[in-house]
Amino acid sequence: MIRCNHVVQNDKLGDPGYEESLAAFEARIAHGDKVEAGDWMPDAYRRQLIRLIHVHANSEICGALPEGGWIPHAPNLKRKLALIAKVQDEVGHAQLLYRAAETLGKSREEMVEELISGKAKYSNVFHYHAETWADVATISWLIDAGAIVNQRMMAEGSYGPYGRALKRICYEEAFHLTHGYDMCITLAGGTKKQHDMLQDALNRWWKPIMMFHGPSDKESRHNEILMKWQVKLKSNDEQRQEFLRQYVPKIYELGLTIPEEWNLRLDEDTGDWHYTEPDWAEFLSVVRGNGPASALRLRTRKMAHVEGAWVREALEVAARDERMPVSVN
């Protein structure tokens, strides 16, 4: 934020004074102090954070697409308004997150380019199609629930600008979650057709949901250093457990079932859920752009960006001249 004289110097292993700076940096984090834009930070910390926030921002803007496509079909006026507001929030979250990443020295333009060229990743769940209205309800309830587990944790992380953005995001996600839950309650308790629609959606979405928090701790490469630097405070498996503990009982309560092949079993002693391990090779393939909707998502994002180019250019040019005031008084 504000003007940051990025201290991008001697921030790599082997640079003069790196060890001392790193020790001071890690001591500050251990003490619970936040890192701010403009602070000295290890290059690896900066790069990991840019990567994480960039993926998060991409996920918000790509996440606007599957649900955004259903805005014209929302079945009553309240749902229509709520869905527009929800998708708008996601665009807003992307805006806040790209800004947080920008404080680390990467421009939004560059991040957007990397997204539409397929170089940068976004969350696995948005590589799938939202096939029916019940998918919208399922995404809004359970994907947002999963996101809240992740974002509440990340909001306490060590990088100040990211944490501040996430606090506001979590506040808005609470509306998304309730709105999604409300839709699911209606469908689950509605006609047989509605209930079946919801069960079908849940069956389709359960795999991406199980994969949502990322590869198992046994497989994840990034966890250890991210946890040491308090970028992440909980492992992927811990987050997945937290999600299952909170939401599986609520899913059952609505009279819904989870596909048998997942062998979901509660360990009464520990409170943990046991499940069939997702296929992490498939997960990696999906986030690399081989999911059912991956090509469509990128095409849509690219189209919006390219078709908007003349508008961005025109306003850049117009900003150089004096304008008629917009105020209406």
């Binding site: 934020m1 504000i2 805006q95 806040l96 800004r99 920008e102 421009s107 939004r108 333009e109 957007v112 501040r164 953005a165 506001r168 180019a309 961005r312 250019e313 306003l315 850049e316 117009a318 900003a319 304008r323």
Partner: peptide, 30 residues
């Protein structure tokens, strides 16, 4: 051309009598 526009910091005042508080930033042309 960088067409993401320049960055403005945004300050928000909730009620009269309270200070303006920094809430974030946006990209805008002017």
């Amino acid at each position: 051309m960088d067409t993401q526009w320049r960055v403005f910091e945004v300050f928000h005042q909730q009620t009269r009598g309270e200070p303006h508080v920094h809430v974030g930033a946006i990209h805008a042309p002017d």
